[in-house]
């Protein structure tokens, strides 16, 4: 147990260092808060890094399709933690009726990616903190702690700087915004062990109810629960040590199918 605690201490120290380093470079920053366990853990770390008070806004991209539990959680803790919360929506797309029933790929793209892009343009953020982890999803394994996105929002694989974490170098060119990933080296189990140690509040959806729980939360329309009896943090940690199911299994297939459908439609199928 002692070694495990020191592992968490090490992760915590690294993350706090990255958080402070990026802030001192960019000042005009924000944390992307999805209300999920990872970004809530990140928010916790940011508060620790700045002695309890967030010196920059928390940005929530609201697709309007989130679970009610997520909205309740957001309201409660935005108030309790005194957050400067910016809630942003792609109103234009919503007015046009973009939604999961019209195509999940377009929905995700318009209501998340485009909405975020607009918020960054409006607020002029130079860097964003994200709670992504390397073990989460295939493509995310390639992310770096500091990951630049160009004007078009494309992630430029080829120009990816060498691991800046090791170089303590965080300059970005004017037209880019930098994505900062302080939790990149954490695993799903690390997150839960830290949540337990720090007593960080998380959304109730993560705890099993009637044999099901969510391992990953987002929009009500696109997240499926997994079979689970884990109704406490201890049980969740126990479950994760034995499971072979991927964390995002409730989400991944739907999106691939939808992308597939979009490709087939463009060639006249369906």
């Amino acid at each position: 147990m002692a070694s495990n605690l020191s592992q968490l201490d090490k992760l915590e120290n690294q993350s706090i260092f990255i958080i402070r380093e990026a802030y001192s470079q960019f000042k005009n920053v924000a944390i992307l808060w999805s209300i999920g366990k990872d970004s809530t853990t990140l928010l916790w770390l940011v508060r620790k890094a700045f002695f309890g008070k967030l010196p920059f806004p928390a940005l929530h991209i609201d697709t309007t399709h989130k679970f009610q539990e997520i909205y309740d959680f957001r309201a409660k803790y935005a108030k309790e933690w005194g957050l400067n919360l910016i809630v942003t929506k792609n109103e234009e797309a919503l007015a046009k009726g973009v939604g999961p029933d019209k195509g999940k790929f377009q929905c995700c793209n318009e209501l998340k990616t485009v909405a975020l892009k607009k918020a960054i343009a409006e607020q002029g953020f130079k860097a964003l903190y994200l709670g992504i982890r390397r073990d989460e999803h295939g493509i995310r394994a390639k992310e770096r702690v500091f990951s630049p996105r160009d004007e078009d929002f494309e992630w430029d694989y080829k120009n990816q700087p060498p691991e800046l974490w090791d170089q303590y170098k965080t300059k970005a060119t004017e037209e880019e915004h930098l994505r900062v990933h302080p939790l990149l080296g954490w695993t799903e189990i690390d997150i839960w062990e830290y949540i337990k140690r720090e007593n960080i509040p998380v959304c109730d959806l993560y705890y099993a109810k009637n044999g099901k729980r969510f391992r990953s939360i987002g929009c009500e329309t696109c997240c499926g629960p997994v079979d689970s009896e884990a109704d406490s943090i201890d049980k969740i940690i126990e479950e994760l040590k034995t499971t072979k199911i991927s964390e995002r299994s409730g989400r991944a297939q739907d999106k691939e199918d939808d992308y597939m459908m979009q490709k087939l439609r463009s060639l006249g199928y369906m």
Binding site: I139, Y259, L264
Partner: peptide, 9 residues
């Protein structure tokens, strides 16, 4: 080839 989604896969 078609229909490929993620480069990694």
């Amino acid at each position: 080839g078609f229909v490929s989604i993620e480069f990694e896969k």
